[in-house]
């Protein structure tokens, strides 16, 4: 990797500038909040965010734990990656599950992606924040992901119910973030706000960050459902009458719960090939996420309720 100061004419490249700005955000939140936490979703954005945090506080450890809100329906590869990643980087990880919902048997098949996401992700997240008393939570969301994200602040204020009001956001100027909250209120902080999908991949490549193998193409058992390829990752997958899993060479542009993640047919087996495919692609990355399509403006509805 290129040393920071070797850049000619004392001007940072766009990635180094984004990096410097993100490190600034991470340090501001760590300095101004009593109990921050970093949401860790195991995906590529989380990988970049953790690396930026390591850079922000080196040679010290991260001054906050990671939190994985576990729906129990992630890909097996994701769990394996998570446990190895946390051990190798000596990170403190809290795993939180909505135990009551699990006991009630909530699953993506019977409850529909909308309700399932609300219970297993949004409710679980809010519960975790409350139980541990976190007053700031880092998320890896980017403004280029979805239209309602484009207006999201870097410090996104949430009321005591974890809810977001798009009409009453605090103005955010320069790099002067307003971290004042009352007891029970919190912020979500988005250090990757100004990064794009390409920036994240390019940085992952530059920094040689590890990624979950699911991002790379490999033969995997899938079924095609309403035009979307769903991977049959374990025996809990409910096949519809007539559905027979077949092996196809596929990969994932975004990772989530396996029954809700659409795979794409691809032959990209290296990071540069992924980037190449993305650059030449004709569809946005969230297309593979089933939860966005439920209704128009669905992300905004979820965010108002407390979703990341």
């Amino acid at each position: 990797m290129e040393p920071l100061a070797a850049i000619d004419s004392r001007r940072l490249t766009h990635l180094r500038q984004l990096e410097a700005e993100s490190i600034h955000i991470l340090r501001e939140v760590a300095a101004e909040f009593e109990r921050p936490v970093m949401l860790y979703s195991i995906g590529k954005d989380s990988g970049v965010m953790v690396r930026l945090a390591q850079k922000a506080f080196a040679p010290g450890p991260l001054p906050f734990p990671l939190l994985h809100v576990d729906t129990t329906w992630k890909f097996r590869d994701m769990y394996a990656f998570r446990d190895r990643f946390v051990a190798e980087n000596r990170l403190e990880l809290i795993v939180h599950k909505n135990q009551r919902a699990i006991a009630d048997g909530v699953n993506p098949f019977d409850h529909g992606s909308n309700k399932y996401t609300q219970i297993m992700k949004t409710h679980a997240l809010l519960e975790a924040l409350r139980v541990h008393g976190f007053d700031a939570a880092f998320g890896g969301a980017r403004r280029d992901e979805e239209r309602s994200r484009a207006k999201e602040r870097i410090y996104s204020f949430r009321d005591r119910h974890g809810q977001w009001d798009p009409k009453h956001q605090r103005p955010e100027l320069w790099n002067l973030y307003n971290g004042k909250v009352k007891r029970g209120e919190s912020i979500r902080a988005f250090p990757l706000s100004n990064w794009t999908e390409l920036d994240v991949w390019q940085y992952t490549w530059l920094e040689q960050l590890p990624i979950v193998p699911l991002y790379l193409a490999a033969p995997r058992p899938v079924v095609e459902r309403d035009g979307t390829l769903i991977m049959v990752d374990d025996e809990r997958m409910r096949l519809q009458p007539g559905e027979v899993p077949r092996t196809e060479v596929v990969r994932f542009r975004t990772l989530g719960c396996y029954p809700l993640s659409g795979a794409v047919r691809s032959t990209a087996t290296t990071l540069p090939e992924i980037i190449q495919e993305m650059l030449l692609a004709r569809h946005s990355e969230r297309q593979g996420r089933l939860i966005d399509h439920d209704e128009e403006g669905s992300m905004e509805v979820k965010k108002r309720e407390g979703y990341f």
Binding site: H14, D144, S148, A150, K151, T196, L198, V301
Partner: peptide, 30 residues
């Protein structure tokens, strides 16, 4: 393409600051 939040869509106007991203061979733009 740049129309953001639901409330604004209903009013047919944008009412806040939104950030967009594009890139060319020479620069990344925000």
């Amino acid at each position: 393409f740049t129309d953001g939040l639901r409330a604004e869509r209903e009013q047919g106007i944008t009412i806040d600051v939104a950030y967009r991203y594009f890139t060319t061979a020479r620069r990344k733009f925000i």
